[in-house]
Computed example of a mutant assay.
Amino acid sequence: MNTTIPFISDQFINENCQFNGLIDALKRGFSNSDIEVPMRHHHDFSNPKEANDSTLLLMPAFNPGKELGVKIVTVSPNNGKYNFPAIQGMYIFIDGHKGFIKAILEAKSLTAKRTAAASALASSYLSKRNAASMLMIGTGALSINLIKAHCSVRPIESVYVWGRDIGKAQKICEALKNEQFTCTAIKNIEYKISEVDIISSATLAPTPLVLGKYLKKGQHVDLVGAYKKDTREADDEAITKSSVYLDTYQGGLKESGDIVIPLSKGILLKETIKADLFELCNNSKTGRTSDDEITVFKSVGHALEDLVAASYIYNLFQNKVEI
Rank of each mutant, 00 (worst) to 15 (best):
D44M: 10
E195L: 08
A226R: 02
D292L: 15
A169N: 02
G138S: 00
Q318G: 15
K285A: 13
S109R: 07
D24V: 10
F100N: 15
L316D: 03
T55W: 00
E279M: 05
T139W: 00
E174M: 08
G29I: 09
K49L: 14
V221R: 09
N283A: 04
V308I: 07
I166T: 12
P85D: 06
P85E: 09
E322V: 15
L105W: 02
L280Y: 02
T74E: 12
Y214I: 12
I172A: 11
K49P: 06
A238V: 15
Q318C: 15
L268G: 04
S123Y: 04
I198H: 04
S123A: 08
S124D: 03
D258M: 07
K71P: 06
Q18N: 13
I239F: 13
S127A: 05
D44F: 15
N16P: 03
S46Y: 15
S264K: 11
T3E: 13
I147Y: 00
N130Y: 10
Y227C: 07
T3W: 11
I104S: 14
R114C: 12
L204T: 13
V196S: 04
A86P: 07
I259S: 11
F181G: 05
T139S: 00
A122E: 00
K254C: 06
L253W: 08
K320G: 05
N283K: 13
T240W: 10
K27D: 00
